[in-house]
Nucleic acid binder design. Structure first.
Lengths: 99, 99
DNA sequence: TTTTTATATTGACGAATATCTATATGTAAT
DNA sequence: ATTACATATAGATATTCGTCAATATAAAAA
């Protein structure tokens, strides 16, 4: 995963509502109408956030009749996790802070 | 680490320049003047980015004469890493995508 | 003490963002 | 066909953001 993709994902997660949405979706696929109940935002605002989360490929969307179901995109999430996991302090910095 | 702290860090990493700064610092402590050479931004802009990275505690600062040296904050980085690592798809979502 | 060097702060500006209301679109039920 | 429901889009607005030029501060060198 490229650094620009990572930055885009970080920007998406940099909003508290969107981070909470991701945490909610980590418990499983959710319908937009159910998600709306959990947040103090209007329906258009939720729709806006979901578009941002989709555009950076963090979430998938599944339409079923008039409902839209959202779920985490496993591969994007895991690539992102791998990138962040790779961000570590060098040996000297670690020695300095004693961690 | 609280979700609001995570969101703040994500927001900080949501700018390409700042993400590259973190990647640079992961190779060890750097002086601001050396960092400036690596990016196509002015000195005040770098100073601005470093303030944001310090305010979310991702980086430490060490003053030595007229120089300022920046390094990653191990404990913040590791707490952040742990949070992101904990973000996983649920079993059903994983089954669906076949990962 | 004057000058140079490294960094921070201020103030300005255009671009991007989060949010809302109002409205449109699409689907199912009556 | 009409109505009700779920979601998306459009347009508006206030706020935040990234950047720069100009200036301030602070430390070392001359």
């Amino acid at each position: 995963m490229k650094a620009t993709d990572v930055a885009l994902i970080c920007k998406a997660l940099g909003d508290s509502n969107r981070l909470q949405i991701i945490e909610l979706l980590s418990t499983g696929e959710k319908c937009a109408c159910k998600m709306l109940e959990k947040f103090e935002i209007t329906q258009p605002t939720l729709s806006h956030h979901m578009r941002i989360l989709r555009e950076c490929a963090l979430v998938n969307e599944r339409k079923e009749g008039k409902w839209t179901h959202y779920s985490l995109n496993c591969s994007t999430l895991s690539a992102y996790r791998d990138f962040i996991t790779g961000l570590t302090c060098d040996a000297a910095t670690q020695k300095e802070c004693g961690c």
